[in-house]
Design a protein around this nucleic acid. Sequence first.
RNA 1: GGGCGGUUAGCUCAGUGGUAGAGUACCGGCUUUACACGCCGGCUGUCACAGGUUCGAAUCCUGUACCGCCCACCA
Length: 919
Amino acid sequence: MSKEYRPAEFETRHYARWEQAGYFAPAGRGQPYCIVIPPPNVTGTLHMGHAFGHTIKDALTRYHRMRGFDTLWQPGTDHAGIATQMVVERLLNREGTSRQALGREKFVERVWRWKEQSGNTITAQMRRLGDSVDWSRDCFTMDPRLSGVVIEVFVRLYDDGLIYRGKRLVNWDPVLHTALSDLEVLSSEEKGKLWRLRYPLADGSDALVVATTRPETMLGDTAVAVHPDDPRYRHLIGKSVRLPLAERVIPVIADGEVDPEFGTGCVKITPGHDFNDYDVGLRHALPVLNIFDADAKLNAEVPERYRGLDRFVARERVVEDLRAAGLIAGIDDHVSMIPRGDRSGAILEPLLTDQWYVRMAPLAAEAIAAVEQGRVRFVPENWSKTYFEWMRNIKDWCISRQLWWGHRIPAWYDNHGHVYVGRDEREVRAKHRLGDEHVLHQDEDVLDTWFSSALWPFSTLGWPERTRELDRYYPTNVLVTGFDIIFFWVARMIMMGLKFTGEVPFREVYLHALVLDHEGQKMTKSKGNILDPLDLMDGVDLKTLLAKRTEGMMQPHLTSRVEQATRAEFPDGIRAFGTDALRLTFTSLATTGRDVRFDLGRIDGYHRFCNKIWNASQYVFAQLVEPEHGEDLRYTAADRWIRSRLRRCIEAVHESFKSYRLDLVTQALYEFTWYEFCDWYLELTKPVLGEGPATAAEQRATRATLVEVLGALCKLLHPLAPFVTEELWLELAAKTGAETRTVMLERFPESDDFPADAAAETEIEWLKSFVVGIRQIRSEMNLSPSKPLPVKLAGATAADRARLTSLRMYIEKLARVASIDHVADSRAVRGAASALLGELHVLVPLAGLVDVRAEIERLDKQLTRTRKDLDACRRKLDNADFVDNAPPEIVAKENARAVDLGQRIERLDLQLKRMREIQ
RNA sequence: GGGCGGUUAGCUCAGUGGUAGAGUACCGGCUUUACACGCCGGCUGUCACAGGUUCGAAUCCUGUACCGCCCACCA
């Protein structure tokens, strides 16, 4: 085993061994515990958000597995309809061909091929992260079986009247040529104009002025609306205007939704291209005119001169023509919400098309109730508000997409426009008694990716079959995911789970934060601030990192900016921190917050932590070279102390796991390992195990304690840092001859494994104060750490004397004390630096050691600080309200503190006086 | 317009009624045989602001400011 911590030497090796040995599969006994993975896009790569989530899921999984649960972490990947299709289309474009040129069948084949090649990226990354998923159950949303589940659900929802096909306005992506659901629309404020257009009245008497942000849609206007009570326009209601350019006559109608304050108080109504206007159109039975084709170019419904123009070109021409006709009444700057597709970024167009919808209200009702009743619990609880808010205002879900990659809708049409839904064409024909003379063709559309995602918890476990897995692991225990997909995924899973299994899909939803860069910016390719988890684990040189970040950037000025920022942040690239350091960083950031800024300083700190425990283990191993002779053990105070402290640490670990506070789990283990085990306990074992007065039985007990505590630490830390703990655990076992195959299947420590020992804790606390007192003197007096010091003690109680005897060897070693003498009175020692331990006055005679002035300065500083504390303390106690109202134990504590501080001051004062005398 | 977060040391973050914390950075000292990725000691804060509740507020309440996220059809 290497003397240095080099994670690259063992991380991948252990993972391969675990996987090969089948350790990730459920044990088949114990209480079931199941987590399903949020299936990542099969063609994608894992980003920092994934790595964060996966770390949490794996930690939870490993923790429960070690506690004897029958643990299943269900893996899988998602076909990610639009995203994947776009990737492959881009690829084809680069090859000089296109989806259309290939045709549907060839294209889909091509996507499958691409999936086979690049699908491994994800799984490789998951392995590198240490994810203990049951790979034997790996699946893909478009596997034949899972596709079957999609069909089954679709058909059942249709049969229950919960899926329907309808013609209405949808969010149309003119670039991708598909409908989108409301959730896939990202609206943001953008600068634009507000045009005021003059529409002449049909009778030629006057004109109305309408305000619009989209003048080109005027060619599809079928009315003009005013508020019914608007005195300016009341007299015009029921009259008509002559729509310019189109030269159509349309009515002036009254509608309460019109805001008289906005614009001119006069609205042009375009039911075919505006969601509001569509509703107005329905209310007033207006005709719906569709003036755009799939590219959002003007179609044959408009006058010749506008046909075939892109909507924005048409806008210019319409404005131009209106101006020429003197019909522009004004143009103002205006900021409005522009809807864009979340994938293409294209400005969406409301378009009247036939689409498939899921009727959500009935499904939502159940799902709301489930959360209200606590059958699903959100962690942090607050997210349930977000969930309720959306669910209570839910709208029907448009599930059809005009894509080729995805689950094709199981609906068939005959030549008369009749639609038949069924599991396949044969079933449809049989059910509706359609002979071969009826030509049927299947719907061309595919389903929204999230449709199959919504079924994930039960589809992966074998539904609709009543499989053993479904029976055993469903409902799953916890869903761990980012809050950004509460609507997309979490809510829909709850609805579908309840609908098809009668049960919630999971009992808890743990929503973790989103990972941002160190500036708090979202990590996106376009910003060039992406961090690849692999680069943090394995390291990356600056050149490669720069290439990665600027690859495929469209705008050169952005490229140089990204390059600059990257050089500034990572002047030497990123060094390899290893998986465990990355995981510990993530768990330490798993607080209740909603974003985490990823900072290299943190991962560096956890790399050091791994190094620390590695080296501590090297020390332990070095103590285990001789085979043990003899049986009896005599535990030292230090042994009993560290066990007692470990007990508390284990309690904290369990408690924090229970509340999903992995940051607190990490903190508890970090602090115990570093500050108690390494800083003190290991140092305390040195005088016992080296030359000295310790008996063989004490040495045996100490070695046993080292082994036990280190072993427990390996187990306790294993869920967070699986690799280094495995490496150390196996080495420890080799040294002690213990039988074990892996730490990951060991029993997780319980607090009762280690006895509490208040007496030992008090004793070692006393020792620590003693040692620290002398160290402080040494440091502040500028005394060399290696110089042994004589120490005089005054005011030692019987207990102090007893401890001095029993802890003598520790004091000598840790404080480098040459001699310890008792004196009757501190005044007997002329010129000494001092430390106070309760009653005990520790004196280090300074004669010839140091200058007195420094000690005076030091004492003065202490005195000032202590006086300040006492003042604050007195102020409280002098306050009658405090004494009367505060709980007695708080008052008592404060009283004791005042006494203690008072004594301290007295002694410091005395000591200071004496030093001044010498000077 | 509605909803939800955040504001604590230079930086990244814990702390949710009782003496302000960690990592990192910083200062001083150390080749003390596990570890210089270390050890020892130290420095660092009007806990955003203003009111209020309370004996006592970083912590609870109200309001304000700033930053951020989500939802929503004002053309």
